[in-house]
Structure formats: C-alpha cells, structure tokens
C-alpha cells in the first residue's frame, strides 16, 4: 500500500516538472515556426499600392526620328548632417573617435538618353525633288528623351531619414550626368548620321537615286556624291 502511494506521488512530480518544460518547448517551436512563416511571407506582404486610373492630359503629334541611344549606370551619393551629429555626443563621436555619424544615401541609377531629329521641323523648302535627285536639309539632331524611371533606381544604402524632396534632388543629378556622358560620346553626331542613313533608305526605296544633304552641321562628314 505504502509503495503504491509513493509511486503515484513520483508520477505527479514528473507530470508537474515535465509540463512547464513542454510548454516552454511548445512556445519555442511556435516562435521558430512563426519566424519561418514571417520570413517566407515577407515578399508577399510587400506594401501594395491601390489601383487608380490613368488620366490622359494631353496628346501631342510627333515626327521624331530617334536614331541613337546612350545608356549608362550611375552611382548617386548624398550625405547630410542628422540631429545626433549636432549633439555633444555626436560631435565627440565624429572628432574623438573619427566615427562618421552623418546620414547617407546611395542610389544606383540606370539611365538612357535618346537622340534624333524632329521631322516636324522640316518645312516644304527643306525637301526638294528634282528628277531623280532629292535635296534634303535635315534639322539638327537633339536629345529627344532623357529617361530615368523609378524602376531604374535602386536604393543601395540608406541611413537616417531622407525626405522625398531630398531624394528627388539627388535623383535629378542623374539627368545632368547622363547628358554629360552623351555629349562626351558624341551622341548628337551619331544621331544625325543615323538620321541621314534612315532618310536615305526611305528615299531610295521611293525610287530616288541621288540624295543630297544640305547644310549639315559642321561635325558631320557628308557622304561622297554618287556618280
């Protein structure tokens, strides 16, 4: 009898000791499971925008012959003082330990400059047909588009708080740098040459044998006339 009572007490003791351990384990397992599910669904939970209509404000007729493109990938870097850097602790960190406490923003931007000629600038006198010869005075080549869209920007590093206006200012520098690159590589010249080539193909297709380009920009070397 006495032995049987002792066994029951021991069983109770085991139950009492094991239960909190099991509960702790169960909580731990749940936490791990939750973390895994949380990580897996991270992409799915990406902040989504609402569906809104696209409103057409203006329709413009064009006659733009785009003949050359320049692509580049740029790194845009911005830094600014934050509140902490102005506090005594921030000043100490900067001067005493050489620790940089400024806010930084690094953006990688892919951009495109498109150049060509605007054929709507051609007046009646700019194309003259004389028998099997055409005299063409093409307008000067120009940059028609400088494209850097949100999908072309990648925020590579960001520390501190950056307002939309501050980010936009930094993004706008991409446009200037793209234009500098396009100038450097002579994009307008390449565009003009491409335009001459395209117009020649079109006019030759219409049966003209001789195509003469008048008043080409000085940087253009005109093709030798055909005999």
């Amino acid at each position: 009898m006495e032995k049987g009572k002792t066994n029951t007490r021991e069983k109770k003791k085991i139950t009492i000791t094991v239960s909190p351990t099991l509960i702790m384990l169960a909580i731990l397992v749940l936490c791990i499971l939750w973390t895994i599910i949380h990580m897996k669904n991270k992409e799915k939970r990406e902040l989504k925008i609402d569906e809104t209509p696209v409103v057409v404000e203006k329709v413009r007729t064009l006659g733009e012959l785009t003949t050359a493109c320049y692509y580049d990938e740029l790194v845009l870097q911005g830094s600014k003082r934050n509140y902490f850097s102005t506090t005594p602790l921030g000043v100490l960190a900067r001067d005493g330990f050489g620790k940089d406490v400024d806010d930084h923003l690094v953006i990688v931007a892919k951009g495109e400059v498109r150049a060509g000629v605007d054929l709507l600038e051609l007046s009646g006198e700019d194309i003259r047909f004389v028998e099997d010869t055409v005299f063409v005075k093409l307008p000067e080549a120009k940059y028609l588009d400088i494209i850097v869209n949100p999908s072309d920007f990648e925020i590579f590093a960001e520390s501190g708080t950056w307002t939309h206006e501050q980010v936009t200012r930094l993004q706008n520098t991409a446009k200037e740098r793209l234009l500098q690159g396009a100038d450097y590589y002579g994009l307008k010249m390449k565009a003009y040459e491409g335009a001459m080539d395209a117009v020649t193909t079109l006019l030759e297709a219409a049966g003209y044998t001789y195509i003469r380009f008048d008043h080409a920009p000085t940087y253009i070397k005109l093709p030798a006339p055909k005999d």
């Binding site: 733009e64 493109c69 491409g194």
Partner: peptide
C-alpha cells in the same frame, strides 16, 4: 551607345 531607327509619332502626357 546603340543605334536605333524609331519613328515616334505620338506622345501621351
């Protein structure tokens, strides 16, 4: 740089 031959005919703003 790359060469293209595209005739842009309309722009929607």
């Amino acid at each position: 740089l790359s060469s293209v031959k595209e005739l842009g005919l309309v722009e929607f703003r």
